[in-house]
Amino acid sequence: MIRQADLPEILPVFPLPGALLLPRARLPLHLFEPRYLTMLEDALKTRQRLIAMVQPHEVPGRDGAQLHRIGCAGRVSQFSETEDGRYMITLAGVCRFRMVEEIGGFTPYRRARVDWTGFEGDLGAADHDPHLDRGAFLNLLERYFEDRNLDTDWGSLKEAEDELLVNSLSMLLDFDPEEKQALLEAPSLPTRRETLVTLLEYALRGGDGDLIQ
């Protein structure tokens, strides 16, 4: 397990819309752009092997995609190369951070100076949700899956630990990038579950009105 004292001040940044990584969760990624292949090579040379996942967003009046201030760092836990030079990797979520500033330089990918303060709990044991009504939550989820013509292993969902259940759904379900960002920034597992419930109910109503400001 990585200790807070081992977390670096500067991270390579992978800005991928809609890709959500959470602490203690795993995110598979497919890398093929030359700049991100270079990013992976550089990350693998470091002791921590960390890559920062950050949601990009457009800001009126500013050129190019801007980055949200809060992201999550993941450790490259698995990687394999395809015959044509692409990489399939898995990031294991380590800890969220707050971006301080982007760092210029000679790398083809973006880098940022980050602050880990306030996210120390991400480095601890799995979180729990003492107020989770699993029956009601799964009923809502079943309605959502039926509405979207989706299927899943309901037995595994019923048996999953609180954090695995809520975080896996937060990462896998097809929410907008801003909604994914709201799930990332939730300060606790119960808050993330409440946000997830709101998003599911909103989607079932047909998305009438603005949910994430």
Rank of each mutant, 00 (worst) to 15 (best):
I2V: 15
Q4V: 09
A5R: 13
D6Y: 01
L7E: 08
L7D: 09
P8M: 01
I10F: 09
L11G: 00
P12S: 03
P15L: 10
L16F: 03
L16S: 07
L22Y: 04
P23C: 08
P23F: 06
R24H: 14
A25E: 15
A25W: 06
R26K: 13
L27F: 14
P28F: 05
H30N: 12
L31P: 13
R35C: 12
Y36W: 12
M39A: 08
M39K: 12
E41A: 15
L44S: 09
T46E: 13
Q48L: 03
Q48S: 14
V54M: 09
H57M: 09
H57L: 11
Q66A: 15
G71Q: 05
G71H: 06
A73D: 01
R75I: 02
S77G: 11
F79W: 12
G85M: 08
M88K: 14
T90A: 11
C95R: 15
F97H: 03
R98K: 14
V100D: 14
E102D: 02
G105I: 03
T107M: 14
Y109P: 13
R111G: 03
A112E: 01
E120M: 10
D122H: 01
A125Q: 06
D127L: 11
R134Y: 09
L138K: 09
L138S: 10
L138R: 10
E142W: 05
Y144M: 01
E146P: 05
R148H: 15
N149H: 11
L150Q: 12
D153A: 12
S156T: 15
K158S: 04
L165S: 04
V166K: 00
V166Y: 00
L169I: 00
S170H: 03
M171S: 09
L172H: 07
L173H: 00
F175R: 00
P187S: 11
P187Q: 12
P187H: 09
L189C: 11
L189V: 11
P190T: 04
T191M: 13
E194A: 15
L196R: 02
L196T: 02
L196C: 04
V197G: 01
V197N: 01
L199I: 03
L200C: 08
L200M: 14
E201L: 07
L204V: 07
G207A: 02
D208Y: 11
G209M: 03
D210G: 12
